[in-house]
Design a protein around this nucleic acid. Sequence first.
DNA 1: TTGAAAGCGTTACCAA
DNA 2: TTGGTAACGCTTTCAA
Lengths: 330, 330
Amino acid sequence: MAITIKDIANKAGISAASVSRILTNRGRFSEETAQRVRELANEMGYFKNQSAADLSQKTSRVIGILVPTNHTNFADEIIKGMQKKAYELGYELLIAFVETDSQQQIKTVRSLLSRQLLAVVMLAIDIEDAVLDVLNSADVKLLSVSNQLNNDIPSISSDNYAMMHTIVDYLYAHGHRQMALIGASDPDPIVAILRRQGYIDALASHGITYNPDFIWGVEMAFQTGIDAIKKFGLPLPFTAVIGSADIISIGLLNGALDAGISVPNDLSIVTVDGTELTQLTRPILTATQQNFAQMGELAITNLANPSRSPHSVIFTDITLIPGGTVATIG
Amino acid sequence: MAITIKDIANKAGISAASVSRILTNRGRFSEETAQRVRELANEMGYFKNQSAADLSQKTSRVIGILVPTNHTNFADEIIKGMQKKAYELGYELLIAFVETDSQQQIKTVRSLLSRQLLAVVMLAIDIEDAVLDVLNSADVKLLSVSNQLNNDIPSISSDNYAMMHTIVDYLYAHGHRQMALIGASDPDPIVAILRRQGYIDALASHGITYNPDFIWGVEMAFQTGIDAIKKFGLPLPFTAVIGSADIISIGLLNGALDAGISVPNDLSIVTVDGTELTQLTRPILTATQQNFAQMGELAITNLANPSRSPHSVIFTDITLIPGGTVATIG
DNA sequence: TTGAAAGCGTTACCAA
DNA sequence: TTGGTAACGCTTTCAA
């Protein structure tokens, strides 16, 4: 049987209530007894039973995080950011990996929710309505990070629309007029829609009518990049390509290599995300880097703030980091 | 205020005890009332308060996982394996990321332990003694995965000693006589010690006395690979190199590329881990693949087994996957 | 098959 | 500054 505050109280000759006050630093008590109690707690190897505390307090400082198992590696960076802030502000994180299977998702979410959470953060997930219903039926704050949901859920992400303008402008300035967008043609997710629209509008602002064929590829996968090069064949009908995720861009790079296309001489590549993966290739990928750590920190700050607006959309910084995959042409 | 079993009981005109029995499927009850209760629970949007249940039951089915924030990406694969098995067997996973800072580690661990855990799994961590003390002072099972600890803690990992034999034998069979081992020279971790010894003994079994200079590099990092090539310079004093992690091997490959060394013609590479990272390079890395999913599943199975032996060491499968980075020479 | 009641460990209120 | 006590929601024993 584990040690309880009652045990400590007995040994110290005071009441459990006092021990509780001391150990939680709430209410009044004399520093004298406090000293003794803290020592005793240490000696006896006391561990707070958080379940009992939660039950008693009815409010919790636990934030649940839903992470897709097939997550790209930037999820780790976001979690690190959340972890840092949560540690500072005294929140606890409860990380749950969810599969794409909606049944399993619901079970995981229910198990999460049975922990009296303060909030649930959805990390780069396009959550299904059934799951969302479950979440909504519970009394928790919701927040979507690195993804915007079409619902009224507050979100923190990069400004994906503006990001495409940045990239297109950059490529345009380097002489490119024909550029493809790979990996953002999934019809559903808001992120993909925003990127497509940003791409189209940015081209238009330079007087270029976009070619629908140049928007191709759904999966955020290495193979998507490989396949894209194969699909368009030689000679490529464009001089530059935008990879909608680092892993896609690495696929594009390798696909080009396999096809004897020289990067950046014959093909320029700009990638979206800018994780450390971009450093692993030769040449190093030119990237629009998202500030994932910032997303994580803002997520916690936002949830900690009781007066957060219910439908807010917060954008985090984007930085274009030149690598070696963009050439000036024309 | 959230719905409780009492609310359900009231509405159904029965006692809370009955509702509890029905919802947990324990004890006896009539299918008739059960039907009604389950419907009601659904309608009313009931969520079990797991804190209350834990408090009442005194035993928990929650397994805590300590994951280093600077984890290599195979941690995800292990977690997936654990998740799958945990889901099957009805356990809950509580994932906590820990920094290298020992103070923060202790706080994280304490917060974990305050949740009445069944067990704590340490994922590829060389835990510090201070943290281990905290863990030992609590009444939880411990298990180390993908790493063996020098203490009496049960562990699940690849047979790192045998793995080196596999690799050395493979390279020897391809004509290599001079081979380096990069990224396993950290004096402390058991894993590094085992790999070094396996490497040395395997060479000896082929009548080769190992060259101490050829064991180099501490960090499991991309830069370690890059630096290794620089350190040994041209011409390389060996014909093959073993990278102690995929990310190191990618560094080796890029370092070779930068130095104008052709892989595999001038240098053969075998990597340890065999994660999907190995598919991103050209040529694809020849790897000894560890079975991370199996580690994860075994971890849960092991913890679920009440009669587990306290000092057991379980080994998981290793598979040599030929890629394009090993040439036959001589 | 069902119910009443005690108990899990902690906190919060009120009184001393 | 301290202590007594009720309460949190659920499970479990024992009786009915």
